[in-house]
Simulated assay, not measured.
Amino acid sequence: MNRRKFLKWSSLGVLATLAGGTFASRSLAANRYYDGPVSDHFDGRHFFNPGGEEPNGFFDLLRWQLGGGRAAWPLDWPSPFPPAVPEARIAGDRLVVTMAGHAALLIQTAGLNILTDPVWSERASPLAFAGPKRVNPPGIRLADLPKIDVVLVTHNHYDHLDLATLKVLAQRDGCRIVAPLGNDRIIMPAVGKAQVTVMDWGGAVALADGVVLHCEPCHHWSARGLGDRRMALWSAFLIETPGGNIYHVGDTGFHKGINYRAVREKHGAIRLANLPFGAYEPRWFMRPQHQNPQEAVEGMLACGAAHVAGHHWGTFRLTNEGIDEPLAALEASLDTVGIARERFRALRPGEVFEVPAAKA
């Protein structure tokens, strides 16, 4: 096989893992990451979305990849914001969110520095030479990151779980890494003696006085390569703080808004929701795993979020839509339902969002 064909098929395999297809639709082997009891979302071998949809298979992936309709992306799309240099700590009820890129957000409040889905690598891929490549540098230089207390990893796709970045953070800061069930088997061999906590949906752990982390459902799936589809859990997180609730969703299909309504019913008012709104076309393929901008706005309403930090757009080309199409569609959706655009901020790398205080 010549290099061009090898790169093409290598990239296809990466896309299969990131976007919903895989070369092995079901694994016949035992679960390599988790061996816990059967539950309403674990059948003894695979995790699943209750009442939901499974990800598409390899032939659907080929149909998508060969079907055309893929908008061109620029090789470079610099952010209008310079690299941020965050404050060392933010105390009290202040809440500041800084966009590093894609789903990597620095959340600072109550004296804690919390980093979500950190990816500082050049590619969201298991390969150094193929797979989605970033079109803008991280909005915070690693050297400028303050000491990180907690890293939240929502699931194991390469655009959310970057072992190289986790290793640097763990060695530098000794931070606590929190992820859904099974992901410790992926993280710990790569990062060494890191403190890794795994959680099931419905679980809760204290992060500090008055700060509690809750693991909540989202409609997604997982895989790192061939034969491990849905063997590690995926999740959203809700951070309960004295200054208000923060809801972080890494990836999700809308799933009729079920999980959004459930988190509102369980936790009440949400000061800030971090919601994905990119990587959604074509809808027939992406709908079960990635919500589109209209659905993200519906999710904002369903969970009752006062403000939203929008992410998962404009850094890695994963799907068919153009690089700025999510922003145009988001603004149109906000205007249609009468939500002020400043309440749903489509963040760019380096952008700093000082979230208004929760209303009493």
Rank of each mutant, 00 (worst) to 15 (best):
D159R: 03
E216L: 09
L226M: 15
P146D: 08
I148T: 06
K147I: 09
L207P: 07
N156S: 15
R185E: 13
I186L: 15
L238R: 14
V198D: 04
A223D: 01
P217I: 14
C215F: 00
A143V: 10
P189G: 10
G243H: 00
H214A: 04
K167Y: 08
T241S: 12
L166R: 05
T154Q: 01
V135Q: 01
G225C: 01
L213G: 07
H220D: 00
R185M: 05
V178N: 05
L169G: 09
L207G: 11
N183Y: 06
S235Y: 13
V168M: 12
L166A: 04
N156K: 06
G243R: 10
D173E: 08
R134V: 04
W234L: 12
D184Y: 10
W221Y: 15
M199D: 08
D144H: 08
A164H: 11
I186Q: 05
K147L: 09
E216M: 09
P146M: 03
E240T: 01
E240W: 12
T165Y: 01
A204R: 15
M199C: 12
Y158P: 09
V212D: 02
H219M: 13
R176I: 02
I177C: 11
R229E: 05
D184K: 10
R172I: 05
R224V: 11
D173T: 03
T154M: 03
C175Y: 08
V191Y: 08
F237C: 01
R224T: 15
P137F: 08
T197M: 00
V196T: 13
T241W: 02
P189T: 05
L181D: 01
K147V: 05
V168Y: 12
A236V: 12
G203I: 10
G227N: 11
V153R: 06
V205S: 00
K193D: 14
T165D: 07
V198P: 03
A170F: 12
V191G: 01
H157Q: 07
D144E: 07
I186H: 00
V196R: 04
M188F: 00
L163K: 05
L163A: 10
A190V: 01
P146K: 13
M231F: 15
